[in-house]
């Protein structure tokens, strides 16, 4: 094998790895290094590292939220609605529930249906409180129960590439949606 072809193969592997099924080696700066077990809205178990392989837009919400959560969900819809090419298929919006007690997987499933969130483009995650705390801390999300029913929390949206490396974070609703769009198209161009 020539040096060029080895290089080409390595390059090919590097490009393809995040997209291949199975468990590729995660880079050191992947948030999926955290590990941990979760349950999907459809009841299936999931190791955090299995989220690798597709780029993701991650937000933390809870389904009974009456404040800005609906706005976040709307923002996420907007951010992905006009996408074209492979990124449109690959990018999966991932909503992590901050309220594991009330947001059972069944409740998450119902919420997806109510909101018209399709399974290809959206994923909701249920985890035990400790896992939620760890993942939130990893992404810089702050949250705190307020009163009986509410959980105050950061309005963050995090764009992860297929390997789980943070590519962009919108800290709040005041950030320009164009910045998120630009980060997504940058990611799309790398995937071509």
């Amino acid at each position: 094998m020539t040096r060029e072809s080895v290089a080409a193969l390595v390059l090919l592997l590097m490009v393809c790895l995040p997209l291949t099924a199975g468990q590729p080696e995660l880079p050191d700066d992947s948030v999926y290094q955290l590990g941990g077990s979760w349950t999907k809205h459809n009841g299936q178990q999931l190791e955090l590292a299995e989220l690798a392989g597709r780029p993701r837009l991650v937000s933390f919400v809870y389904t009974y939220c009456e404040h800005t959560c609906p706005t976040i969900v709307a923002r996420l819809k907007l951010a992905t609605d006009g996408l074209e090419g492979s990124i449109a298929d690959d990018l999966q919006i991932t909503l992590v529930s901050l309220d594991p007690q009330r947001d059972t997987p069944q409740r998450l499933q119902t919420y997806m249906q109510e909101q018209g969130l399709d399974e290809r483009g959206w994923l909701m995650l249920h985890g035990d409180p400790d896992e939620v705390l760890g993942f939130a801390a990893m992404l810089g999300v702050r949250y705190r129960p307020m009163g009986e029913r509410d959980i105050a929390h950061s309005n963050m949206m995090t764009l992860l590439d297929g390997a789980g490396v943070v590519r962009y974070q919108s800290k709040g609703l005041g950030d320009d949606p164009a910045d998120l769009a630009e980060a997504i198209s940058q990611l799309a161009s790398e995937e071509q």
Binding site: V61, H67, T68, R142, D150, A152, H153, N155
Partner: peptide
């Protein structure tokens, strides 16, 4: 839940926090 803007921290910064 703070924004780093300590003078406003008694109220949640609505653009940054939901609540």
């Amino acid at each position: 839940l703070v924004s780093g803007e300590s003078r406003a921290d008694s109220e949640l910064e609505n653009s940054l926090f939901c609540g």
